[in-house]
Nucleic acid binder design. Structure first.
Lengths: 400, 400
DNA sequence: AATAGTTTGTCGGTACACACAACAAACTTA
DNA sequence: TAAGTTTGTTGTGTGTACCGACAAACTATT
């Protein structure tokens, strides 16, 4: 039961077209989720009348959201006409900025990528601005610019509503105004979001079936730091100024192997991130008086899985702390599912073993068990998240 | 942007009366929040047309939700007719079960108590069931039973939707089926909720203006244990099986002064609850070779405020851990406001001092500041929460 | 091959609810 | 007393969903 926010009432009152807005979104989501599907089937599943569904489907075909794909099989009567989301046509531009690479891609309504450009991320904010602007302008033009919106995932603090990027810790960029520039240059709406929240959004709209059938789950993104995304009632929890879900800075002890990005040595992220993992491995190697310059996280995980002693120990200890933190969040938020994303999930067995250790705590506390699973989104969840930012606007519930 | 849950679509489609349902709730909430208020003023603030508001107000007066209270002052034209919530008439029965006492009260739509009965809580579950049933039946009868619903706050795990009480740790009651019994006996809907969540709900609907103007805040209930309630987007976050917000069992160290209710010595609640406070005080007294049997929490807080050394030290240390935990939640959830409830809030200055110490952490992490405040609900927030359970159904947004 | 039954999709009628505009009532100010 | 303002009501038009009837398309049975 939700309290009505009177300060926003002017956007909330129901007008004559509100009925249609709501039902159109519901029908659109049925086509997205259950395609191929017929008008009659949608009517049965929604309890809308066949004639109503028919009018809405005509409208959706008319505006290019969905398309006919021939007849289905008869069940003893007239064959139904089937529909699915219109695919192959540009619907979204996704910008995914990570500390190493930046990807700009064109996607259709179904989330398929039609074009993709990757380039190295530079610490030079001016250079990055011009690079992004130029490539986005190019893609906008070649897409025909018809209702194509833009989604932008950034590893930092953003205000989604104002479209402002406050701080990108990795490069110490502050108050980066790129979104307004893109909007001015292309005329398209830009939606910006923190990378962890974008990943949570990606899981919500494109994740594993178990996740998509849930509307309350957590996403733990293990990378350079640790990001957490909270999805509650089908919405990404943002908190004030989009800073919600920064559990990476939760206190986990007082002698972490590395400094946190915030300077502290107490944060969870300083115990359980890739940075902590690498530091532990280097310390073990140094203790063994064998020096080996730099190691990649993927290689380290590979080594550990092949039984290399130091790598295995470093990974094990790091996952111990990761599991402790996850356990805290499970106890505190009691989600139906926890999704872990990042390169360390290749060693999933190890994480599961560490989780089993702490899982009993929630059982002791009498709480229901939580499903823990690795992300099924592959190597670029934040890019998919950037697409999700646009599609969530297209498919999400009307403001009401 | 919220994802539409297709599994519940049959309840979500908009019908013809959906417009009216939505707008009726909005108008009702305006009368609740801004009374005395006229039809014309509601129309101005909502952007609904005067004629529409007029029809809805007639409807609300007709069903006894609001009532006329004479004319307002003219601003150069005809005097407006003012309305307010109908008060003085029974609208909700609140049941508030705490480890020591159980309160059953009759309240009106505005949340005023019309009648109140208090009796000692007994560990005998059968006795409690019959006591509650009998008194509720009596109140139902004398209220005329016209649309009066029942709210029930319990210190334990509940499933709000099924109306089941899984576990009350303090008495180790399990699977208590009292809600169904009450419903069967009275014919009135019973809404049951965990005490921390009920308190959060109370803050949401009856709290300080700063809280009511927010739709994202945390409630920390310090009592025998520590309960946390999370309000996000005007809704209480429940998590799976209503277990959301049990951050009391978050790991805060490994040598707490007492065992947690779950058996662990690592939980936050074992560091920062009233139980921990009392244990620390007793330990200090024993160390001083002065024995003093049992102390009440209220007395201990009083002593500490008057400068008694041991009490002050025990309270200070406990508040240190309380502040640490709150800080974790602030960093993780970035709420606009944190409300602290419980007897220790009488020593608010001390809590604030401890909070100031950890507050810098969120500033370092670049996060926006959070307002911390004591509850303004007085001595029985859970009773008000129990009323809130009913009123949230009456005033909340329609399911849609 | 004809007929009966089923399913799909369409069309016109009805009901509901909001917006709008015109108007009457009630009040203030000059 | 007259002009201006605000409130609240009433009648009309429009958007949208539901309903029932019907045609089209198909399957199954005789």
């Amino acid at each position: 039961m939700k309290r009505i926010n009177l300060h926003r009432a002017k956007n909330q009152i129901a007008r004559l077209n509100t009925i249609r807005d709501i039902n159109r979104q519901i029908v659109l989501n049925y086509v997205r989720d259950r395609s191929p599907i017929s008008r009659a089937e949608i009517a049965r599943q929604t309890d809308l009348h066949r004639s109503t569904v028919s009018v809405i489907v005509d409208e959706l075909v008319g505006d290019g959201s969905i398309e006919e794909i021939g007849s289905g099989v008869s069940t003893g009567g007239r064959k139904p006409t089937m529909y699915k989301l219109r695919s192959g046509e540009p619907a979204a531009i996704a910008i995914d900025l990570t500390p190493r690479t930046t990807t700009i891609a064109l996607a259709d309504l179904a989330g398929n990528f039609l074009e993709k450009e990757v380039f190295s991320t530079s610490p030079d904010i001016e250079f990055m601005s011009s690079q992004i602007l130029e490539r986005v302008k190019k893609l906008t033009k070649c897409s025909g610019n018809e209702g194509v919106e833009i989604g932008f995932s950034v590893p930092g603090l953003v205000d989604q509503r104002l479209g402002e990027i406050y701080h990108v810790p990795y490069f110490d960029w502050r108050n980066w105004n790129i979104c307004a520039e893109i909007e001015a240059a292309t005329g398209s709406k830009v939606t910006v979001e923190n990378d962890a929240n974008a990943t949570a959004l990606a899981e919500l709209w494109f994740g594993h079936e178990k996740v998509r059938k849930t509307d309350t789950f957590l996403m733990i993104l293990v990378g350079e730091g640790i990001g957490t995304g909270i999805v509650f009632d089908g919405q990404v929890y943002r908190g004030e100024k989009g800073a919600g879900g920064e559990f990476g800075h939760m206190i986990a002890g007082d002698n972490a192997p590395v400094d946190c990005s915030c300077g502290s040595r107490e944060c969870w992220e300083a115990y359980a991130s890739e940075k902590a993992l690498l530091a532990r491995y280097r310390a073990l190697l140094a203790g063994d008086s064998m020096k080996q310059g730099s190691v990649e996280v993927s290689d380290l995980v590979e080594l550990a899985m092949n039984g290399e002693k130091h790598a295995a120990e470093a990974l094990n200890e790091t996952m111990h702390y990761l599991a402790n933190g996850i356990s805290n969040l499970i106890v505190g938020l009691s989600p139906q599912v926890v999704v872990v994303s990042g390169r360390v999930t290749r060693a999933w067995d190890l994480i599961e073993a560490q989780m089993a250790r702490v899982a009993e705590r929630s059982v002791l506390a009498g709480l229901p068990p939580t499903i823990l699973m690795p992300s099924s989104l592959g190597d670029s969840p934040t890019l998919i998240g950037a697409v999700g930012l646009v599609l969530a606007r297209k498919f999400g519930a009307p403001a009401f």
